[in-house]
Every structure is written in C-alpha cells, then in structure tokens.
C-alpha cells in the first residue's frame, strides 16, 4: 500500500501539493512554541505599544504588519497575530485528528458489526445512522459543551463530542464494504471453519477494510477541523486565551470593515488545511480504490 501511495504522489501533482501542505501544517502544529519563540512573540502578551492610541486599532497599515509582527496584531489587545495563528494550528490540527480517530474507531466497529452480523443489529444500526444524520447536531454540541462540568478539559470534551457525532458516516461506508466482503470466499471459509466474529473481524475483514478506512478518514479530517472552528466561531470551542482559528475568525467579523487582515490570516490557514486534506484524500482514493478513479 505505501508503494501505491508513493506512486500516486509521483503521478498526481495535486495530491502531492496536498500532502506537502498537510505535512507543513502538521510540522507547524508540533513545533508551534519553537516557531513563535523564533518570531519573538507569544500569543498571550498584551502590547498596547503596537496599537494606535487614538482608536485601539493596530498601528500602521494592513493590521500592523511589520518586521516585528509578521501578520500584524489584534485590535484592542496588541497580541501578535502570527503567534495566534501558529498556536491555533495546534488546536485545530490536534482536535481534528484526534476526533477523527474517535469517529473512525466507533464507525468501523459499529459498521463492521452491522454488516457482518446482519439481522437486528444491522437494522438498529442502519436506523440509528438515519436518526443521527437527521439530528441538528450543532445544537447538541453547543448544549453538551455547556452542560459538561468545568473540570473536564475543554479540548478533550471537543474531541469526544466531535468524534462521537462523526461515526454514522463512517459506519455507513464500512457496513457497505463489509457486506461485499462477507460474500467473498475467504470470509465464508473462515466462518465455516468456526472462527468467532471478533477473530474474523481482526484477521479477515480489517486487513481488507484498511484502504477505504484510510481514505474516508483523510477525507473526514477537514470536516472535523471545520466543526471545531465552527464551534469556536459560535463561542463554545476551546476556552480563551488558547488560540483557535474559529474564534479569531468570529472576532474578525466585527472588524472586517477596518482590519480585514484579522480575517485573512486565520481564514487562509483554515482554508489551506482543509484544502490540503481534501486533495490529498482525493489522491489517496484514486490510488487505493481504482473503481472510483475518475480523475
């Protein structure tokens, strides 16, 4: 499989660009503190010297972009926007990846169980998936993040909540795949030899499910990142002062007329990340699932 991916990257320039973007952003997320140390500002320190004393807006043009503040500063606080965006990467990237892992684990277990066991299990799962897809889940996420006791760390809560509401889509795909695999000889053979469901799942199903799982996981990371940003946008994401792209963008709304840079930098970061995962995921799908190869 890795060989197939490498071949795909060599052939598909878009997917390569996506892979590079994702890698760079992952790198930024991991080394955020190091990067901001090099740049000379942390995302928390207030600096009224960087503001125009008459209005509290960033001093200088384009939101205060200068050699000192690479992306300018926030109005009213003077905090460094570069540091905020870089540290926001960490928030988005980790919550996005971790919640995807949660959804994938849940989705694969439930989907495979439904497809393999069939009968009532299958009926209940299919129905539950329908119910979930019909849920106004954004409202529930908001409510849950308000209900949860403050002792639970907010990032952990976000990972669990975003991850939990993501399983139905994955379960659907895994179920369909399992149904086709079930008809195949090697699975039927294992069953007639008396293997238990868990054994069949681990040794026969899972190895054959890897490819679609990886594709669907990669393609669902952007929507998880988008959800985290949306929750932060609506004011129920990670708590202040931890930087988050969604919150920055939401704050930028009121400043869009006077200080558009406040919107553009976090917005660009968010867009690049979701774009990277999407094109890379498309490439992966083409490489691992030749049937859908339509590019």
């Amino acid at each position: 499989m890795p060989a197939a991916i490498l071949r795909m990257l060599r052939r598909d320039r878009w997917a390569l660009a996506g892979a590079v973007t994702v890698t760079v952003i992952g790198f930024v997320a991991v080394f955020a503190t190091l990067l901001t140390t090099i740049a000379g500002h942390d995302p928390y320190t207030y600096d009224s010297a960087a503001l125009d004393p008459a209005t509290g807006q960033p001093a200088g043009v384009l939101g205060g972009i200068s050699g000192d503040h690479w992306f300018g500063v926030e109005p009213l606080t003077g905090r460094d926007l570069f540091a905020i965006v870089v540290h926001g990467t960490r928030t988005s990237f980790f919550i996005g990846i971790a919640s995807t892992v949660v959804s994938v684990v849940l989705g694969v277990l439930v989907g495979a169980a439904a497809g393999y066991l069939g009968g009532w299990t299958d009926r209940i799962v299919t129905w539950a998936v329908d119910v979930f897809l019909g849920f106004p889940y954004l409202v529930f996420m908001i409510a849950i993040s308000m209900v949860a006791p403050p002792e639970i760390p907010k990032p952990l809560l976000l990972i669990v909540v975003i991850g939990f509401f993501g399983w139905p889509g994955i379960a659907r795909i895994v179920r369909a795949q399992t149904l086709t695999l079930k008809q195949r000889n090697f699975v039927a053979a294992a069953r007639t030899l008396g293997a238990g469901p868990w054994h069949v799942f681990r040794t026969e199903l899972l190895p054959n499910l890897w490819a679609p799982i990886i594709v669907v996981a990669t393609l669902s990371v952007p929507s998880r990142i988008g959800l985290e940003a949306a929750l932060s946008f609506l004011g129920v994401g990670v708590p202040v002062p931890t930087p988050s792209w969604g919150r920055s963008i939401s704050e930028a709304i009121q400043w869009v007329g006077t200080d558009p840079m406040l919107l553009i930098f976090p917005g660009l970061a968010l867009f690049l990340t979701t774009w990277g995962f999407n094109v890379f995921g498309d490439g992966l799908r083409d490489a691992l699932d030749p049937k859908s190869g339509v590019r």
């Binding site: 509290g56 109005p75 006077t258």
Partner: peptide, 11 residues
Amino acid sequence: VSPAQLAQLQN
C-alpha cells in the same frame, strides 16, 4: 456602539 463600530466610524 461597540469598539469595532467606533473604529469604523472614524473614517
């Protein structure tokens, strides 16, 4: 009038 709106009115 919020701070952001005040800033906008400066122009």
